[in-house]
Each structure stands twice: as structure tokens, then as C-alpha cells.
């Protein structure tokens, strides 16, 4: 590690390492965050859930959206529709999308999360989050 020689260098280092604690800072206020939960059981991973999760992470970083946390869950039971993604807006009921592709992920972020407009692909069940 080269020495930090100025305040600007300190600031740029801080921006680079910010993500180390970002998740924790958001987690402290998880009630006010949009939670994207990707099902990461064997069935999900086999259908590409890990790629989808990483893609969400990249998208959020690129577009610099600060009110989202991405996390994972076990099998939600919709193995036929993997990868599945559960989206919870603050104070709202969770919504589950099935057969999520990268294109769908982008659409979910742009429409559902940013403007509250639901998109096709919702699994139409009275889904309850496991936290409840």
C-alpha cells in the first residue's frame, strides 16, 4: 500500500473502500431500504441465480442507487420458475418475480424499484416473506 500523501488521496481511498461497510450502514436502516432477495438454493444457482445477483450488484453500483440492499434466501419453493427474485419496497408487501433474466432484472430495477410500476413475470400467489 503506497502512502496517502494528501487529503484528496485519502478521499479517493475512502470512496474505493466505502463498499466494505456500505452493506452494514444500509442494514442498520433496513426498514427504509428496497430489499432484493435472490433465491440461492441449488435449484436457483443451477438456473443462474448467482449471475443475476451479481448483475443486480453491478447495475446498482453503475447507476449509483443508494437505497437498495441485495441479499439472498433459500429456496422459495418456485423451483419451476428459477431464478426467482423477491422485491420488497419499504413498507410494502413483497413481490416475487420468476424466470428472471438480465433483461428482466434491468426492467425490475428501472420500472418497479425506481417508479413503483410492476412489470410482467410476477408469480401470482399470496406470497408472504419468511420474516413474517
Amino acid at each position: 500500500m503506497p502512502k496517502i500523501m494528501s487529503l484528496d488521496e485519502l478521499k479517493s481511498l475512502r470512496d474505493n473502500v466505502k463498499n466494505k461497510v456500505d452493506l452494514r450502514e444500509k442494514g442498520e436502516n433496513v426498514d427504509e431500504m428496497v430489499v432484493i432477495r435472490v433465491a440461492m438454493a441449488t435449484c436457483g444457482i443451477a438456473s443462474g441465480a448467482r449471475d443475476i445477483m451479481n448483475y443486480f450488484a453491478d447495475l446498482i453500483r453503475e447507476e449509483n442507487v443508494n437505497n437498495i440492499v441485495i441479499t439472498q434466501s433459500g429456496c422459495m419453493g418456485y423451483c419451476y420458475a428459477e431464478p426467482t427474485v423477491e422485491v420488497t419496497l419499504p413498507g410494502e408487501e413483497p413481490v416475487v418475480y420468476g424466470h428472471v433474466t438480465k433483461e428482466k432484472a434491468k426492467e425490475i430495477l428501472d420500472k418497479h424499484i425506481k417508479s413503483g410500476e410492476m412489470v410482467d413475470g410476477i408469480i401470482p400467489v399470496a406470497h408472504k416473506s419468511i420474516d413474517e
Binding site: 487529503l7 485519502l10 478521499k11 481511498l13 475512502r14 473502500v17 466505502k18 463498499n19 466494505k20 461497510v21 456500505d22
Partner: peptide, 10 residues
């Protein structure tokens, strides 16, 4: 680095 991420040394 975690301390710096929390505005450490700023």
C-alpha cells in the same frame, strides 16, 4: 480501510 470507509482520518 474499514475505519477510513467510515470517514476515518478525514
Amino acid at each position: 480501510e474499514e475505519y477510513i470507509a467510515r470517514d476515518g482520518y478525514a
